[in-house]
Write a protein that binds this DNA or RNA. Structure first.
Lengths: 171, 171
DNA sequence: GCCATAAAGCAACGATCTTTGCTTTGATGA
DNA sequence: TCATCAAAGCAAAGATCGTTGCTTTATGGC
């Protein structure tokens, strides 16, 4: 029941991010629109719930190659591939539009920060000189998201360039 | 007439970025809704026009202090103050939501790029070693917008820190 | 000054969303 | 098993949006 609703929202976000209504969701989920109107304040409230479930997803494994440069390159590449998927782009847009950033955006960023901290800590234990985790967020993650949200190109070499840039800060 | 419509849209964006309709705009502007339905394809088309007019605004003067670090610091500070204004934040959100990024987002980014090029060129003529204009966009502008869009804090020192970071790339 | 064309207003219609009262289903505990 | 209460379905009414045909106004050329 509830999962049917969540998947229905997910499908609709994947198809048309513009103008998703309760009746649409209800039809897909095979429930009565009234149920949705009664349970959630509005469509954004439901979307927030779905986005939180979809994006706060489990800990992706963090690369551990033995060199921070390799780790970051792989990591940035994975993220770049992930957030440029049309479906994911629409999720991001929908999130921003629905103002669910305060809740979800922060949790996503925090997850990325934790991953960065992990890689940086390992590198430091190996004796490498590293940028801070916050710098990695600012100079690798932020530009990637910026390009996605504003529909700027994210070619394969771009993530690599960002990693190269942030590493020069450590020297 | 046309300006009345534009200002009406601006007001509405400033108040409620969610669900702006032609009848709302028409009422504010003192015109008939039909006029809007006939002239613009949909609300997004009108929003795009207004956003373009509001954001492509004239060439803000670019700082010219005689040192790139000073220039960038002042510039980033101005931008940070500008894009954190509640009204501007709502504009950005509305833009992203309405998918008018492809048109407007690019033009805004291009304007920033031109400004960065100007400052970098001047610095190079003075003999300074500088990052590229593209790097300034990636590592100063992008993190600022990222923080705004995802509702992360943009305290005064943040812009300064970004500038410091990007300058270390040039050495 | 008059006519032609384009733009804006008006009004009515249809479609869709949203709300609300009431009924039905289903799960829980005595 | 039955009683009870919460949650879901149903149906009708109300509100808003979006569309379209027609009328009115204004602007420019002759």
């Amino acid at each position: 029941m509830l999962t049917a609703i969540h998947t229905a929202v997910g499908e609709l976000v994947g198809e048309r991010a513009d103008k998703i209504t309760f009746p649409m969701i209800a039809e897909r989920a095979g429930v009565n629109p009234t149920t949705l109107y009664r349970r959630w304040k509005d469509v954004n409230a439901l979307m927030e719930e779905v986005a939180a479930a979809a994006l706060t997803r489990d800990g992706d494994p963090v690369p551990d190659t033995g060199s921070l440069e390799q780790d970051l390159t792989q990591w940035a590449d994975i993220i770049a591939r992930d957030i440029t998927r049309p479906m994911r782009v629409r999720y991001l847009r929908a999130m921003v539009a629905a103002r669910i950033d305060i809740v979800v955006g922060c949790s996503v960023t925090e997850a990325r920060l934790e991953q960065a901290v992990l890689m940086v800590d390992r590198a430091r234990e190996r004796g490498e000189t590293t940028p801070t985790a916050a710098q990695i967020l600012d100079h690798v993650i932020a530009p990637l998201y910026h390009h996605v949200v504003f529909a700027l190109p994210v070619d394969p070499g771009y993530a690599r360039r960002l990693v190269r840039d942030v590493l020069t800060m450590a020297r």
